[in-house]
Design a protein around this nucleic acid. Sequence first.
DNA 1: ACCGCATATTCCGATTAGGAACATTCCTAC
DNA 2: GTAGGAATGTTCCTAATCGGAATATGCGGT
Lengths: 190, 190
Amino acid sequence: MSMPGLPPTAFALLGLLAFDADSEADSAADSAAGMTGYELKQRADFTLRYYWVSPAMSQIYTELRRLSVEGFVAEQPGDGPTRYRVTPEGREAVERWLFEGEVGFPVLKHPVALRLLMGRLSTPERLQEMLEQHLRDLDARRADLQGVRDMLGDDHQRRYAALVADWGLAYYDSESRIVADLRARLDTMD
Amino acid sequence: MSMPGLPPTAFALLGLLAFDADSEADSAADSAAGMTGYELKQRADFTLRYYWVSPAMSQIYTELRRLSVEGFVAEQPGDGPTRYRVTPEGREAVERWLFEGEVGFPVLKHPVALRLLMGRLSTPERLQEMLEQHLRDLDARRADLQGVRDMLGDDHQRRYAALVADWGLAYYDSESRIVADLRARLDTMD
DNA sequence: ACCGCATATTCCGATTAGGAACATTCCTAC
DNA sequence: GTAGGAATGTTCCTAATCGGAATATGCGGT
């Protein structure tokens, strides 16, 4: 019950497992219950990476073991790979976590902004190039996320995921606009 | 010369030191040259935290020692605290780093989006509350950054810092707008 | 039978995070 | 002046996290 100890990533994984359990409840005849660590990694790379981090494999398994100790997930070592399911306690724990304690402010690690900050030590041409590249990266990332958004469709089960995907898309659009403006300002700066 | 080894934070600090050196060159009669680790921490908390991380003290001193080994900063152990200055090699290293290699895409750790993603496990009321709190946090953060921006003024030396600060302000504004829209959509969702 | 690819898990070293702990100096109210 | 507290300056420790190499094990195709 040592709530404070679990890192957000643990709850994120727990959330994915809860989601998976709910989905499988519908498409009943689905072979095995729960997910393997590998599958969780896939899922995390697909959805989580846009708003959180894409956890390393090592971390996935670390968190799974920890969640298992807490009784929030149940391991099912069949003949094949180990499958993990959320327990009722686990589900309760995520729900509690969702509205408990400090949510905290987003942390941004923005290598482009960091370099622009030291613009004096570079040249306008190089900075323009860097921003142009950033715009291309933004386009690519936006396209990826749009793919995710399309896949979510208007399925009621996934409406929150869709909401957050739209948030992300709007963010990328806004960032592109801002960077375009910056490029214009850079031109008239020196 | 082991360039690849140095983490971005090291270059960020090196950049701050370079900036400091340039500033002191103007206001000549400034007592001691260079900065102490403590001062660097302050400076980092003031400017770097908006686009990068606010490095822990331990990390500041770790990086300083590493930079010293590389010959990118010079330690000056006077009678008081140790002061650090960029060396010409250090300055060269930042400049090289600025246009060399992969810049990389920003990484966002967004606890609010993460929780909204699991909205199914919460209630609309709680989610609204969370988003409202996020809007308040955004306002506060924006105000802080505006303070930084005001301090930068239109000093030619600091024009890039000002540019990046404006970027940040535009980002906060956009995020606020997006979240307000999300709140409206949430109301009509269930 | 063999190749290659996706799956599945463990392990390791290096970084990073986040402060506690510890001095020292500086300022300010009494 | 001086006692107490705030700011300065540095080290140290523990945990978390990263990032991928290493290692299996199936499974499908030829």
